[in-house]
Write a protein that binds this DNA or RNA. Structure first.
Lengths: 129, 129
DNA sequence: CCATACATGTGTGTTTTACATATAGATGCG
DNA sequence: CGCATCTATATGTAAAACACACATGTATGG
């Protein structure tokens, strides 16, 4: 590996030589994605892990962080969980959305709408120039 | 030892009681914003600081990080700077976009386009349900 | 003289994301 | 059996992105 020359102290995530990895992702996007999926149907973490890429566009979501997000959501009463009993295989913790979680999803939706508008006006200005 | 008691309040940035601050911002958005502004005209940091909120939607951008971004961009040859000579007042370092920076801006534009599509399909699915 | 606006920076802490590893039940296979 | 693999849930820790605070210096107006 041969890059060190002139490289900055600031390690932006390069993808190739001279390239900056540009993804333009929305911060904490798995959070609203999880809420939306749970509004559609109750599910456990592993199922969400499977369904999330459809919404996020990423190949796959980090499982460690997903479980932490689920815990954090539950701590604040935005989702509820229970261990699914009687089924074979590893124990599954099944989550469902609470009314508060539903409201949070609504907030996310409006915030995402604003974000889209910002992107729109950016791209308009970009194309105009 | 499954299901031990919840502890450790995960400090998501609350705004009010029971509320989660939801902003849905695009990661590193000041970067493309700076590049776009510099494509329109050369400028120094303080000018950018003034012009940025128009693109980002935030009240104001953190100056410390802005200057660090400008440095990082210059280290990788995406912008060029020189001290403006002969003018009264504090010394100004004026930046302009390089061809590489222009290409990075183009990458940002496509990435932002994809991001917008993801938001669109999310909101569609949100409204549909 | 002092406050304020202009202008450029560094220091440091917090939040968010990424990468790695641990544990364990079930299933299939040689 | 012994072992790999898939399902399933989690923790540990490092890196990246962001926020907040402070330092320095030039000019202008009262």
């Amino acid at each position: 590996m041969r890059h060190h020359g002139g490289r900055g102290a600031r390690g932006r995530h390069r993808i190739g030589p001279g390239r900056w990895g540009v993804r333009a992702r929305v911060e904490r996007f798995v959070e609203p994605a999880v809420l939306l999926l749970l509004r559609e149907r109750r599910a456990h973490g592993y199922e969400l892990l499977d369904a999330l890429p459809d919404l996020t566009g990423d190949a796959r979501v980090d499982m460690g962080n997903l479980y932490r997000v689920l815990r954090a959501l539950e701590e604040d009463g935005l989702v509820q969980s229970e261990w699914e009993a009687g089924v074979p295989g590893p124990a599954k913790r099944t989550y469902e959305l609470t009314p508060e979680g539903r409201r949070l999803l609504d907030e996310w939706a409006t915030a995402l709408g604003r974000s889209r508008e910002r992107i729109d006006s950016f791209l308009e200005r970009y194309e105009g120039g």
